[in-house]
Amino acid sequence: MEYAVPLLGFGGALFGIVFWMFDVQIDVRISMLGCVLASWVLAYLAWIRPRKDIVALTTPIYSFIFLGFPLDTFSVVVLEVLYAASLTILLVRLKYRFGAPSAPVPDKKELAEPLNSYVKKTGDALLSTGPEPAHSAAVVFVRFAEGEFLAAARGAESAIAHLSDASAPRALQCAFAIVKEQAERYDKSFLQPDTFRVFPPEDASVLAKIPDPKFGKPEEYDAALENALLLLFAGAWNMSEKDHPHLLKCQAFAQKLLVP
């Protein structure tokens, strides 16, 4: 669709040049329609991007203001060429300065990628999670996302007290423990400790981010929490359907955690 902007703009101008050169007895402003359409396409391209470019968005208004006034044929042709060139420059600027169009908004009942793939990947490993631990995982994740660190720590503590190997896999138990430890510290604004809980190497298959051996302590600390939160999200999503609406509200946070 991006090619439509220069094609329509310069295409319209080309018609204008032909009308002018061969003295075609037709209102030359018909050729302006190309520029008008090119403006609308540019505005649409600006609209679908997450960052809105007000210049590109308002080009349809300019197209009517600048091209809607009666002018002689030569002036119309010059104006069309300059306007088509301006639209093309704005298109290039839009592409490089305002980034790619936003990803399609996921259905409000579905998880977007790559979170969806991660949740599916952990499905089998978290199959033994009971409904209660899954619900607790949802509560802890949502509380943490809301910045209610103390409530998240208390929720994780309570879940740990009721967990057993029969009701939740080891990795999920470890996730609760990590979130409890770090949420307590966030609540008190404590600095990162020298020693802290991390996932054992055998849990690597269910983690969203494989710890890099080159990681320093701070990165390892952060990665442990992010993996723990994502595992709680996955456990809750897979095994507690009633919590889906609450988890969907925090989906953007989970997606953010997945970003390296």
Binding site: A145, E146, G147, F149, C250, A252, F253, K256, L257
Partner: peptide, 14 residues
């Protein structure tokens, strides 16, 4: 009242 957080943890739910 403010809790010290990492930038990544700040999200719309907060």
């Amino acid at each position: 009242e403010a809790k010290t957080v990492r930038v990544k943890l700040i999200n719309e739910n907060m």
